[in-house]
């Protein structure tokens, strides 16, 4: 991820406005995720982070604005995106094994009306292996812990082999060890030249591990390389003076409460 990366941005949002009823959830958001970066979307609760991802991928109707994936309209480029939504809609009791869930990532590429071919197997195997779930491939999904489930969904996204990976709060309810392991995988994915966008609220992790950040509070407060975007001033603008979480405004620079 250097300035020399001449590819079009992995994800570009221009003037995106979304409202639920009268309340604007996103107002005129402009944001760019350069290709080949590990990017975080951060902001306080209710800042519209999940809404941004869904609207950007065309899964939610927007009032106005447009989104481009690799320079093409998002709706036409969904096959270039692997999206890991929040997990509330998933039916955990569904009789399905870990391996089958990961195979779902191949459905689109392999054709909806064909059997999953033998040639798809290596992709599925490799995805399972990268998240360390090979030993659990035959388990039913409800027999896994929260962290293991999240690993499976990351494996499914990996199996999609899309150049852009979008994850909505992948670390919510996940233990620290799994979080570190998942981040390692995401970093590796970035190093392969793919782009990763993650909604996250641990500013410490974002500073340490991410390249690029979008600071959001209904509108885009800042968007750019982590060091430039997550300045104490910007964080105060997004979270309010008292709200910057966990002293994460940066201990070296300036404690958030001194202002």
């Amino acid at each position: 991820m250097s300035a020399a990366d001449a590819r079009p941005p992995a994800l570009e949002v221009r003037g995106l406005t979304v409202s639920y009823g009268r309340r604007p959830v996103l107002a005129d958001v402009d944001a760019t995720v350069p290709a080949g970066t590990l990017s975080a979307v951060v902001g306080p609760n209710g800042a519209g982070k999940s809404t941004l991802l869904q609207a950007a991928l065309g899964l939610l109707p927007a009032d106005s604005g447009r989104t481009l994936v690799e320079g093409r309209p998002a709706r036409a480029a969904l096959d270039r995106v692997a999206y890991v939504p929040q997990r509330d809609a998933v039916d955990w009791d569904f009789p399905i094994t870990v391996r089958e869930v990961v195979e779902m990532g191949r459905y689109r590429a392999a054709g909806w009306f064909r059997r999953v071919r033998r040639s798809e197997r290596p992709v599925v195997d490799e995805s399972l292996d990268r998240v360390g779930m090979t030993a659990f491939a035959g388990r039913q999904i409800s027999q896994l812990s929260g962290g293991q489930r999240q690993r499976v969904f990351l494996a499914r996204a990996l199996a999609q082999q899309a150049p852009l990976l979008v994850m909505d709060e992948p670390f919510a309810g996940v233990d620290a060890r799994t979080e570190a392991a998942l981040l390692d995988v995401l970093t590796a994915v970035r190093d392969e030249g793919r782009s990763v966008v993650v909604v996250h609220h641990d500013l410490g992790t974002v500073r340490a591990r991410f390249d690029h950040a979008l600071l959001l509070n209904v509108r885009a407060v800042a968007c750019g390389p982590v060091a430039e975007a997550l300045t104490p001033a910007n964080l105060r603008r997004a979270y309010g003076a008292a709200g910057v979480p966990g002293g994460a405004a940066g201990r070296e620079e300036e404690p958030a409460w001194t202002r």
Partner: peptide
């Protein structure tokens, strides 16, 4: 048999189904 994958995806994880065009 024809719609096996669609049915499986849409029932198990509707959010994911939508992103894959189902």
């Amino acid at each position: 048999v024809a719609f096996w994958k669609q049915v499986k995806v849409a029932t198990f994880d509707p959010g994911f189904a939508r992103t894959t065009g189902v």
